[in-house]
Design a protein around this nucleic acid. Structure first.
Length: 314
DNA sequence: AAAAACAACAACCGCCTAACG
DNA sequence: GCGTTAGGCGGTTGTTGTTTT
C-alpha cells in the first residue's frame, strides 16, 4: 500500500500565493498559532491549500523577522564556510544566520555564491578556456588510464553533486596556497579520505556518527568546529578558511584566472593536441551548458575531478 | 524591437524520520 | 514491534523579470 496523500490534490490551489491568502494565514497563526497540525490548518482558515504549502509559506515568508535578499559579506563567508564543511545542510546553515531561511540560503547559493566561488566558463578568455578544456581531456586520457595501482574499492565511484562542488572548492582553496604546482603535484590533490568524508557528509544525518542527533536550534560555534574536526577539513586551509573564502569571493577575478590558467600552461606539453580537440567541438558536445558549475562540468568519467577520484591517492 | 538566453526566486515533490496509537 | 502519519528537509521545477543578441 502506498502512502496516503497529505491532502486532496485535486482540490488544492497551487502556484503563487495571493495577498489575501497571505493575510488569512498570517492573521490566523498570529492569533491561534499553528496548533501543531499543518494539515488541518488550511481547512480551519478556509484556504484551498495543502498544509505543507501553508507551512512553507509561513516559515519562509510570513513569520516575523524574516530577511530577504541583501546578504552581507559576513553572511556570504558563513554560508561558504559551512557549505565547505558540512555540505548542503541548509537548515543547519540557516540556523547560523538569524532571519534567513534554508530555502533563501539554498537559492542564494545556487544562483550566486556557487558561481562566484567556482567561476563560470565564460569568464575565461577563449584562448585560456581552450587550454582548460584541453587539459581536462589530457588528464582524463593520461591520468586515469595509466594508473595501474588504483583500487576501485578504496573510493566511491560517484560523488553527489554537493560533494563534487565541495571537491571543486577544495581545488580552489588549495590553488590559493600552491597556485603554480597544484596540478602537477599529486600530493596536493585530495586523497581518498577526503573524498570519502566529503561524500559521506552529504548523508551524515543518517550515518552512525557524532553528528546524528544535531538539532538545528542548538548549533554553536564549538559544534561547528566539532563537525569540521569530524569531517576532516584539510589542515592546509582550515586555519585560515575565512580568509581563503574571502579571497575566492571577492578577489576571485584576479586569483582564479591567473592561477588556474597558469597552472594549466605548466602541464600542457602538447598544446596543439589540446587545440585540435577543442576545435573538434568535442568539449561543447559534452558540456553544452554555459556554466562551470558541477552539474555541467563534473560529470563522471569525463573530467579532471573524476580523474583524481579514480586514479590518484596520497 | 523582438527573440532568445539567462538569472533569480517561489513553490512543489518526494523521501526520510520521529511520534503516536 | 509495526503501521500510519505529519513535519522537516533537500532537490528540482516553474514562473517571472532582466539582459543579451
Amino acid at each position: 500500500m502506498g502512502r496516503a496523500p497529505c491532502c486532496d490534490k485535486a482540490n488544492v490551489k497551487k502556484g503563487p500565493w495571493s495577498p489575501e491568502e497571505d493575510a488569512k494565514l498570517k492573521s490566523y497563526i498570529e492569533e491561534h498559532g499553528t496548533g501543531n497540525n499543518w494539515i488541518a490548518l488550511p481547512q480551519k482558515i478556509g484556504l484551498k491549500r495543502c498544509g505543507k504549502s501553508c507551512r512553507l509559506r509561513w516559515l519562509n515568508y510570513l513569520r516575523p523577522n524574516i530577511k530577504h535578499g541583501g546578504f552581507s559579506e559576513e553572511e556570504d563567508r558563513i554560508i561558504c564556510n559551512l557549505y565547505i564543511s558540512i555540505g548542503s545542510r541548509w537548515s543547519i546553515i540557516a540556523a547560523q544566520l538569524p532571519g534567513r531561511t534554508d530555502n533563501d540560503i539554498k537559492n542564494y547559493w545556487n544562483t550566486r555564491l556557487k558561481k562566484k566561488l567556482l567561476g563560470r566558463r565564460r569568464d575565461l578568455p577563449p584562448s585560456q578556456f581552450r587550454q582548460l578544456a584541453a587539459a581536462n581531456h589530457k588528464l582524463k586520457d593520461e591520468g586515469v588510464n595509466s594508473n595501474p595501482n588504483h583500487n576501485p574499492n578504496e573510493c566511491p565511484q560517484t560523488l553527489t553533486s554537493s560533494a563534487l562542488e565541495r571537491l571543486q572548492l577544495h581545488f580552489q582553496l588549495q590553488s590559493l596556497h600552491s597556485p603554480f604546482s597544484f596540478y602537477n603535484n599529486t600530493s596536493l590533490w585530495p586523497n581518498n579520505k577526503l573524498l570519502q568524508t566529503i561524500n559521506s557528509t552529504d548523508s551524515i544525518a543518517t550515518a552512525a556518527s557524532p553528528l546524528k542527533n544535531f538539532q538545528q536550534n542548538d548549533i554553536s560555534n564549538s559544534t561547528i568546529a566539532n563537525m569540521q574536526e569530524h569531517i576532516g577539513i584539510p589542515s592546509s586551509y582550515s586555519n585560515n578558511l575565512d580568509a581563503d573564502i574571502q579571497n575566492l569571493l571577492y578577489g576571485y577575478k584576479e586569483n582564479y584566472q591567473l592561477t588556474q590558467v597558469d597552472c594549466l600552461k605548466g602541464i600542457m606539453n602538447d598544446d596543439q593536441k589540446g587545440i585540435d580537440w577543442w576545435e573538434s567541438n568535442e568539449f561543447e558536445e559534452k558540456f553544452p551548458s554555459s556554466s562551470w558549475d558541477s552539474a555541467s562540468v563534473l560529470q563522471p568519467d569525463t573530467v579532471v575531478i573524476q580523474d583524481y577520484e579514480l586514479g590518484y591517492d596520497q
